[in-house]
Amino acid sequence: MLSETASLVFWVIAFVTIISAIFVVSLRNIFHSALFLVLCLFSVAGVFVLLDAEFLAGVQVLIYVGGVAILMIFAVMLTSRMTNSEVRQQNEQKALGALVAFSFLLIVTGAILKTMSVKGGFGLSPSPSVTISTPHAIGRLLLTNFVLPFELVSVLLLVALIGAVVLAKKDGD
């Protein structure tokens, strides 16, 4: 089980994550929603740290907080209707959204209960002890067992890049 401090930190992070997530979907100004999304993603990085997934936490901050969130803020600023603050940002299909969220909650609860019956404990369980740092292990695996997927990632990124250029070029001209 986690130490007292760690579980306290977990509850603080969970609180920040949930509150900021609620703000993301409920604030009127979509730009403020984007800013709270940054906070939400950053707190998720905190959860990754608690789970001993340091590399994942770093990637979360680097790509989601640093990249994807910036992209979203740009997209908001590029939208011409941004100037009109009267535009409704809320989802029109609240009932359907609630249904989907509730079913997801059921699935996750089921998964947690199943894990509990296997491990016999509640809360964050300590990950299997890793003797080397996570970036180390990931790098070793990427360059030995998973070389082909690793190279395919660059092809995937190339496709994304060319797609972005083609789409943006059409808009630009």
């Binding site: 994807v68 994304a160 972005a164 250029v165 943006a168 808009d171 630009g172």
Partner: peptide, 12 residues
Amino acid sequence: VRYYIFALLFVI
């Protein structure tokens, strides 16, 4: 809109 392509390239 030109800012956006730079943001996309940055993310990649």
